[in-house]
Write a protein that binds this DNA or RNA. Structure first.
Lengths: 115, 115
DNA sequence: TCATATTGCAACCTCCAGGTTGCATGATAA
DNA sequence: TTATCATGCAACCTGGAGGTTGCAATATGA
């Protein structure tokens, strides 16, 4: 199964899986959307948009933070979270590579058939 | 929290979450990679690359199928699975929109500061 | 026809993600 | 100083994800 640098690709795959998994939840996607406005927001403010508890939102933010999608820092008595678009761009490239590979395969196949 | 067409965006978000969640697993990413070579492959063949049971792989394939990332069809006694790159391209665009929105916000912010 | 290969179905197990509640703690406005 | 606001921590609960095993059914090659 495509072993060029087994440990390398395994670690990369694991990393990608973590980020995808972090994005693979409705609530967390909503949080990302809320933070995409640019403004860093506090936990209670982010909770206001949901029907969940503050603790639930906090856990989701921790997951996003663990995946590097979000950075958090305390300011006074509230802790503000802001988006970090880097991982999303990374995954965008990843998806691009895979689907592009697929397209190239189709082209080769077509060329082979027509020859 | 960004309510333009509440039901619409909620349904879209749910859809996106399902696809991201399907990609958010190391084993399933490996399967996607294996299928990205273009060749449709049988369950037992896909299992050969793993340390898992055939049943486990089957379940993962069902998940991928449920997200539309993969299509399966029986051929004789074996059922072959092939990739469908469409959802991946969809998610690629999604990620592009979000990070682009972020970049635009930063530009506006910068312009505002310098004015 | 018969042994074998490939799959499907179903029951079962374990663990953790997602969620809640209750209480303690630090920052703030009045 | 004090009441209040925002958060952190910890215990707890529940359902489903991920995995295995066993058995039945269908295709296929010899």
């Amino acid at each position: 199964m495509s072993r060029g640098h087994p440990e390398h690709s395994a670690a990369r795959r694991r990393h990608h899986a973590v980020i995808f998994a972090a994005l693979g939840d409705e609530t967390r996607l909503a949080l990302v959307t809320a933070l995409a406005t640019g403004e860093a927001q506090s936990i209670s403010r982010l909770t206001a948009g949901t029907r969940l508890t503050r603790q639930a939102v906090t856990k989701h933010l921790r997951v996003l933070q663990g995946a590097g999608l979000v950075r958090g820092a305390r300011h006074g008595r509230e802790s503000l979270f802001e988006l970090d678009p880097q991982p999303m761009k990374e995954m965008q490239e990843y998806l691009g590579r895979v689907s592009q590979q697929w397209d190239e395969v189709l082209l080769r196949l077509k060329a082979h058939v027509e020859s």
